[in-house]
Amino acid sequence: MNRFHVHLNVADLAASIRFYSQLFAAPPAVVKDDYAKWMLEDPRVNFAISNTGRAPGVDHLGLQVDNGDELVALGKRLDAAGGTVIPEEATICCYARSDKNWTEDPQGTRWETFHTFGEATTYYAGDAACATDGAACTPNVAEMNPKVDKGSPCCSPAAACC
């Protein structure tokens, strides 16, 4: 079953944790110095907030799936929708290990589809092999191109590629 994902950038993490804990009537499932996440069942949502220096507001929306086959199916749907789809395999982002697909809708809203298969000790990988922008695990799709090597596990910013 898919789970809707919302990631907000916040100015005050502690105040936001207090607010959303009251709103959701539950504490976050994950709390770090710069990040918190609620895995809610009603509504079924992965709601995350972070304080990583980006402007407050919606960072990206997404769909979390339970397995790799569902991620492949969503990737095909994204491709059929006509946007540029950026695959990102075995990445570290938001204290988790995941395979992902990124795209933007016609308005420029970033969408992430992903399958999480483990935890990580850092917010993001922070290396040239990762497709993230380093500030908040979300690629700037307009500046990204798949690497030439088809066997490569992910994509990277075009400026850093080749």
Rank of each mutant, 00 (worst) to 15 (best):
N101Y: 15
H5V: 15
A142D: 10
A142H: 11
S16A: 12
K100P: 00
C93F: 11
V10Y: 07
G62F: 15
V10R: 03
F19W: 06
Y95W: 09
M39Q: 05
D42M: 04
Y95I: 01
D59H: 13
Q64N: 08
V6T: 09
G82I: 15
A142S: 14
G118D: 07
N2I: 15
P157L: 04
F24A: 09
L61S: 03
T116D: 05
A26T: 13
I49V: 09
E89L: 15
L78A: 11
D69A: 15
G134Q: 06
G83K: 08
G126M: 12
G75H: 09
D127W: 12
D66Y: 05
L40N: 03
E119D: 04
E88C: 10
C154D: 06
L63E: 00
A73N: 03
L23M: 02
A48W: 05
I86F: 02
Y20P: 02
W38L: 02
L78S: 03
A131M: 12
V65E: 00
T132G: 11
C137K: 05
S156Y: 03
A135N: 08
T138I: 09
P87E: 01
L13T: 06
A128H: 02
Q22A: 12
D59L: 15
P139L: 02
G151N: 12
Y123S: 02
A125H: 11
Q107I: 13
P146I: 15
V45M: 11
C94E: 06
T132V: 10
K76I: 13
P27W: 01
N51Q: 15
P146V: 15
H7T: 11
S21K: 08
K32Y: 03
L8C: 08
A14I: 13
H60L: 12
G108V: 11
K76P: 06
L8R: 00
S16W: 04
C94T: 06
G57N: 01
F24E: 07
A131P: 09
G108I: 10
S98T: 13
G57E: 02
V72G: 06
A48P: 05
S21A: 10
F19A: 06
L13R: 05
T121A: 06
A11E: 10
H5I: 14
I49W: 04
A90E: 12
I49Y: 02
V141F: 01
H5K: 07
C137V: 08
A73V: 12
Y35W: 04
P43C: 13
R3F: 09
E88R: 06
F117P: 05
E119R: 01
R44Q: 09
P87A: 01
K32H: 08
F4Y: 08
D99W: 00
E143H: 08
